[in-house]
């Protein structure tokens, strides 16, 4: 199983698409590692700096609705993965992106809109950490001086099994 949790990158916008996560011009790469420097390069979000050094520390992305819409490219989760980001928390995901995350043994966690709104209004985007308790299905956000917030999540049992197996190839190869 992969490791989950760490500093959070807040992306306060809905409908962030796969072209923004990793532009198509890098799809001629044949290794995942080569995608690393280009993560979120074309993200249209005022104030966002794709090359900011702090981005490199982030391990969790928190965002709004319909994250990962557009292309089927698994290059989007890979670009996150090679940058150490193995969890995306959102109000909702595009189907293919969500499946790609779990297929890679990573997590695409859906939270109700109220929880997402609560995180965006409470957390300090510059200092928030997220601990992920996979078995207890709990996220613990902490920021500033001792401020914290705990949020429950629920994975569907298949998705949880993929995370535990390390991905769909591992799961399918053992079973079919």
């Amino acid at each position: 199983m992969k490791t989950f949790g760490g500093p959070v990158l807040f992306l306060d916008r809905s409908d962030i698409n796969t072209d923004e996560i990793i532009p198509a011009k890098y799809l001629n790469e044949v290794t995942k590692e080569a995608l690393g420097p280009h993560l979120l390069e074309d993200l249209k979000l005022p104030g966002f700096e794709p090359k900011a050094p702090s981005l490199g520390n982030c391990r969790v992305v928190a965002t709004r609705a319909n994250f990962g819409c557009g292309s089927s490219r698994e290059h989007a989760p890979w670009a996150l993965e090679v940058n150490g980001i193995t969890v995306v928390i959102a109000e909702s995901f595009a189907r293919i992106f969500r499946q790609n995350m779990f297929n890679c043994g990573m997590m695409a966690i859906e939270l109700p809109a109220d929880d997402i709104n609560g995180l965006f209004s409470a957390c300090d985007p510059a200092s928030t950490m997220c601990d992920v308790d996979f078995h207890e299905e709990t996220l613990i956000f902490s920021w500033g001086k001792g401020k914290s917030k705990s949020v429950r999540f629920a994975l569907n049992p298949f998705d949880a099994a993929l995370v535990e197996a390390g991905g769909w190839v591992e799961f399918a190869d053992a079973r079919y």
């Binding site: 698994e74 297929n103 890679c104």
Partner: peptide, 20 residues
């Protein structure tokens, strides 16, 4: 259905794909 590379890989190897 459009799928990612991992689903494609399993499809190539096993001829199956998982859906909700």
């Amino acid at each position: 259905a459009g799928v990612g590379t991992t689903d494609l890989e399993v499809g190539i190897l096993k001829g199956v794909c998982a859906f909700r």
